[in-house]
């Protein structure tokens, strides 16, 4: 490997090796990270349903025993209304939960609820910056009202540096906000404390409009639509910003107004500090 390095890389490599030689070593395969849960939501009604699937190979390559615990939350942020625990899984295993089963087990007629997946291995610790074994949610609908494929949102752990000052922010570029297209923002509060959220639309010419605050209970979610936004003053494409007094995770999408169909739904990102 050394023969492929440039002189500057070789110097850096040698310095790092020298520093590492004086540091205490953890056993192979063990990091100081702990597995962390991720946040998402479940939709189930007469038209829409959700498949939630989890495979440990998403952010791990270590052969070990894996488990996941699915938690569905209602009004009480300290007490999930439903908990499902997996049996032991191998690295390339996969398990799926259907929202129809969750509906039946929870006794609720329909679902638009915050949920968490805590996936972990008792045998190995996470490696790299990804301390989350992410689950994926595939939303389907028969009338087009809710179609998407979303990875769970990280609560702890991030691949890139996030910029936060007094408030936490997320942004999304180039959304369409016209008479025929409405913006929808679904925000999750992954913490136990309630949170205030503001939504700002920034037109292509830089003019902006803000709505809020919306208060979201702990382990709760909120759906916001741009129906009352002053569309005539906003030039598309529109930048979407969320501002919150605690870290939240938001998803932005569009509704085609004449047909009521969801044309997209994707997650936002924080401002990157580096």
């Amino acid at each position: 490997m050394l023969s492929t390095l440039s002189p500057s890389q070789l110097i850096r490599h040698s310095v790092r090796r020298a520093i590492a030689a004086f540091q205490p070593r953890r056993p192979r395969g063990v990091s100081g990270l702990e597995w962390a849960p991720s946040a998402n939501f479940v939709v189930h009604n007469e038209h829409a349903s959700t498949s939630i699937s989890f495979a440990p190979c998403t952010t791990s390559r270590q052969p070990a025993r894996y488990f996941w615990e699915f938690r569905l939350y209602g009004r009480n942020p300290l007490e999930p209304i439903l908990v499902r625990r997996s049996d032991v899984m191998e690295l390339h295993g996969q398990q799926t939960i259907e929202s129809a089963d969750l509906c039946r087990e929870s006794g609720l007629p329909q679902l638009f609820h915050y949920c968490e997946v805590m996936a972990y291995s008792p045998d190995v610790t996470p490696r790299g910056v990804s301390s989350v074994l992410v689950s994926y949610h595939h939303f389907r609908s028969t009338d087009g009202s809710f179609d998407a494929h979303l990875p769970a949102a990280y609560i702890w752990g991030a691949a890139r540096f996030t910029r936060t000052e007094q408030f936490h922010y997320e942004n999304f570029p180039a959304a369409q906000c016209t008479a025929d297209s409405r913006i929808v923002v679904i925000t999750l509060n992954p913490f136990v404390r309630p949170v205030n959220v503001w939504i700002r639309l920034v037109g292509a010419d830089g003019r902006s409009w803000e709505d809020g605050p919306v208060r979201i209970a702990g382990k709760g979610l909120h759906r916001w639509e741009s129906g009352h936004a002053p569309l005539d003053t906003l030039v598309s494409p529109v930048g979407v910003l969320t501002r919150s007094d605690s870290k939240t995770a938001s998803f932005v999408g569009s509704i085609d107004v004449p047909s009521g169909r969801m044309t997209n739904l994707e997650h936002m990102h924080p401002f990157f500090a580096a």
Binding site: E34, W35, E69
Partner: peptide, 27 residues
């Protein structure tokens, strides 16, 4: 998968009610 309605506190990253992780507690 097993299913139940058990109560579990959920305020930090490492809380799991099944087979646990190492006892490390990161802030």
């Amino acid at each position: 998968m097993n299913s139940d309605r058990s109560v579990g506190k959920d305020c930090n990253a490492c809380s799991v009610s099944g087979e646990g992780q190492p006892s490390r507690r990161n802030v």
